[in-house]
Simulated scan of single mutants.
Amino acid sequence: MSDITNHVADDLTTTSQTETETLLSVRDLSVNFHVARGGWPWQKATLHAVNGVSFDVRRGETLGLVGESGCGKSTLARALIGLAPVAKGSVLWRGEETVSGAHRQLGTLRRDAQMIFQDPLASLDPRMSIGEIVAEPLRTHAPHLGRKEIDRRVLTMLERVGLNTQHAVRRAHEFSGGQCQRVGIARALIGDPGLVICDEPVSALDVSIQAQIVNLLRDLQRERSLSLLFVAHDLAVVKTISHRVMVMYLGRVMEIGDCHAVYDGARHPYTRALLDAVPVPDPALARLRRGTPLSGEIPSPLDPPSGCAFRTRCPHASDSCAARLPPLLRAGAGQSLAACWHPFGSGATPPA
Rank of each mutant, 00 (worst) to 15 (best):
E136A: 14
P137Q: 05
P137A: 02
L138W: 07
L138F: 12
R139V: 09
R139Y: 13
T140C: 05
H141P: 03
H141Q: 00
H141E: 00
H141Y: 03
H141V: 00
H141T: 00
H141L: 01
H141G: 01
A142M: 13
A142E: 12
P143G: 06
P143F: 00
H144N: 06
H144F: 05
L145P: 12
L145I: 10
L145D: 08
L145V: 10
L145N: 07
L145H: 06
R147H: 15
R147I: 10
R147C: 07
K148G: 02
K148E: 14
K148I: 05
E149D: 15
E149Q: 14
E149S: 10
E149I: 11
E149Y: 03
I150C: 09
I150R: 04
I150L: 01
I150T: 06
D151L: 07
D151A: 15
D151M: 09
R152S: 13
R152G: 00
R152C: 00
R153K: 15
R153D: 05
V154L: 05
V154I: 10
V154R: 10
L155E: 11
L155D: 02
L155Y: 01
T156G: 09
M157E: 12
M157C: 10
M157G: 09
L158I: 11
L158R: 12
L158D: 12
E159H: 11
E159S: 12
E159R: 15
E159I: 07
E159Q: 15
R160M: 04
R160H: 09
R160I: 08
R160K: 14
V161P: 13
V161T: 11
G162A: 01
N164D: 15
N164K: 13
N164E: 13
N164F: 08
N164S: 15
N164L: 12
T165Q: 14
T165N: 06
T165D: 12
T165P: 06
Q166H: 09
Q166F: 04
Q166K: 13
Q166Y: 07
H167P: 01
H167G: 00
A168E: 11
A168S: 13
A168Y: 05
V169Y: 11
V169T: 14
V169M: 07
R170Q: 11
R170W: 08
R170N: 05
R171G: 10
R171Y: 15
R171S: 13
A172M: 12
A172G: 06
A172H: 12
H173D: 15
H173V: 09
E174S: 14
E174M: 08
E174V: 00
E174I: 01
E174H: 09
E174F: 05
F175Q: 01
F175W: 01
S176D: 04
G177E: 05
G177W: 12
G178M: 01
G178V: 03
G178W: 05
G178D: 07
G178Q: 02
Q179H: 05
Q179L: 03
Q179T: 08
C180P: 07
C180D: 04
C180A: 14
C180M: 02
